[in-house]
Amino acid sequence: MSGLSFTFRSETLTALGSGALFWPTQSLLCVSDLHLGRTERIARTGGQIIPPYENTDTLARLEAHIAALAPRTVICLGDSFDDMDARQSLTNTETEWITRLQAGRHWIWIEGNHDPAPLDLGGAHKAEHRVDALVFRHIAEPDASGEISGHYHPKITVSGRGRGITRPALVFDDNRLILPAFGTYTGGMSLGRSPLNGLFDRPSVILTGDKPRLVQSHAMARRERIPASSSKG
């Protein structure tokens, strides 16, 4: 899994193609919005029975990161479970799997709006967590600085040569950084939509994918000058 290094509040961070964030000097891996137990909750509340493989897939991808990076600290940035009852839907195998991932490292569950209370799983449960000048919480707060959050599942569309490419994206400006969802069955919210668009001042955007990449903001300015339909006048 390749990564892209960038600077946020003077810290060098790595955006991973999966939407996870790695902080090398702290050996800290951060993933947001796992939404484990989502299919179970959907079946319970609405009767729709979609393929129940999101826990397996999400945990397998998280395990691959942990194996590759051997982080000292793992932060799950809230909405790790789709609701409080979704915890009960984990099979023993899955619970043991999480325990195995936690072994030998500092593990922090940040509470999210879907999972607002402590769970009977190892690791610390916190509303927010501070490391040096950075603060990790689930939902971005107004006037925050050095804040890393999730919740909105930002995605972005890039277009050219007659096609649009839509992908989850990591978005940041001078004050805050928002991670895309790491969970397998998670949709996204376009960066242009409210309230997401109001949270940033001239943001930088990193697209997820096999090779994460920074989308230059000058491209946005250029679009203002050349509307797509101008060729026919």
């Binding site: 972005i156 569309t157 890039v158 277009s159 050219g160 040569r161 096609r163 649009g164 490419i165 376009s190 960066l191 242009g192 939509r193 409210s194 668009n197 001239r202 943001p203 955007v205 697209l207 994918g209 096999d210 090779k211 990449r213 989308v215 903001s217 491209a219 946005m220 300015a221 250029r222 679009r223 203002e224």
Partner: peptide
């Protein structure tokens, strides 16, 4: 039918004329 393969990455690599299209960004 669009092909969502390596051309996406190649296009992004050669992204001279790509533009962010989300409205209300600037």
């Amino acid at each position: 039918v669009p092909i969502r393969g390596s051309a996406d990455e190649a296009l992004l690599d050669r992204h001279e004329d790509m533009a962010l299209t989300d409205a209300g960004l600037t």
